[in-house]
Design a protein around this nucleic acid. Sequence first.
DNA 1: ATATATTTTTAGTCTGTTCTAAAAATATAT
DNA 2: ATATATTTTTAGAACAGACTAAAAATATAT
Lengths: 218, 218
Amino acid sequence: MITLTEENYIKAIYHLSKHGKEMVSTNALAEAMRTKASSATDMVKKLAEKNYVDYKKYQGAILTESGSTIAINVIRKHRLWEVFLVDKLHFSWDEVHELAEQLEHIKSQKLIDKLDAFLGHPTHDPHGDPIPDKHGDFTFIDKIMLAQAQVNETYNCVGVNDSSSKFLQYLNNNKIELGTKIEVLHKEAFDSSIKIKVNGLEMVVSNSVAQNLYIQKV
Amino acid sequence: MITLTEENYIKAIYHLSKHGKEMVSTNALAEAMRTKASSATDMVKKLAEKNYVDYKKYQGAILTESGSTIAINVIRKHRLWEVFLVDKLHFSWDEVHELAEQLEHIKSQKLIDKLDAFLGHPTHDPHGDPIPDKHGDFTFIDKIMLAQAQVNETYNCVGVNDSSSKFLQYLNNNKIELGTKIEVLHKEAFDSSIKIKVNGLEMVVSNSVAQNLYIQKV
DNA sequence: ATATATTTTTAGTCTGTTCTAAAAATATAT
DNA sequence: ATATATTTTTAGAACAGACTAAAAATATAT
Ligand SMILES: [Mn+2]
Ligand SMILES: [Mn+2]
Ligand SMILES: [Mn+2]
Ligand SMILES: [Mn+2]
């Protein structure tokens, strides 16, 4: 039986290793888990013991096939619950992450299958992140960062990189949501800020915003 | 912050004390929690420390006002989730209890309020048990056990006492569910079994069934 | 009332997860 | 290459929650 804490570490390793197969350092893992390096070491040893990661002292950890399967399943649950909270319970997209952190640990394959069906087998969560299907396969969409956009082109907002409530609330305040059309008017060389037109209104976004908003050519 | 384990103990104390105000013995609590008396003692001391129970050595424990509020809130969540699982995800009533045991510990007042609204503010769970409202008030319905029924009367099935999947599956097999009409044909003095007519078919139920089925005069 | 049985508590241990402080290994700078 | 800085691991302790075995309190039977 896998514990809630183990699942969270495994998920963190998955995200830090960028979808799978590069070594994750103890310090990076500790920081992601908001804990100390000594705790991360202990946990990584335990995960290695249970064959969820391969671990070499001082080298870092990497998920095994079985660890990867667990990570993807937790992510699937997390994102499906987020869809439920937004689509069915009418939460705002900036409120659901912490709740999904709790719900993702509910153990029942049947529940997640039924939830998936109830939601109409969604492929993306409220932040534009892909939801792995029951075989663990993702539907990737072809997205770029707003920072990479071309002037005088129009794009669709399709996702966020930073899904903290602070950033999402910033987007709320500026009426930017998934599906919103963004026309790129000007890129300022000095500070990499970008002038865009959204909902008929012109506005300037900083580079740090432009690097956290994913778009797709319409 | 209250832990999952503390919530489960508090809920067990609530149920064992029959909705509130009688002392619960250490042994009874240990048995309900499927643990040992020494563990129950330890936990009861901790709950007393946190002022969720009043506890006197060798005398037993009883919920305080604050403990009672917690118990009722956990029960509210448990039963609302059961309604969700049955009404929205189409689980059968014999499958939902264990899942609700997990879901009842999700911490978010807003979630439970929204779930309640989404479900249409149900007053009873799939087993006929009352769902406390957000102020902790129950809607009690006037029910009796089938064992107390009168011959030649017709009743509505409104709840179960034993909500184990074994009993619920027995009812499934005999096409008895909440709302099913039951006509009482004969009570056998010898073994307290009861002959009833359900869905046009006659059948005999044992006393142990009759004591676990709640009914109401139509 | 005394002996016996049952219930409850205590004492000590274990596992899981965290921490701090110190030691060991690795990386970086001159 | 050596010194210094950074990262990682180890050692030892804490806390929650469980266990076993033994002691203490309470209940029951004669
Ligand atoms: Mn999330
Ligand atoms: Mn989590
Ligand atoms: Mn239940
Ligand atoms: Mn529970």
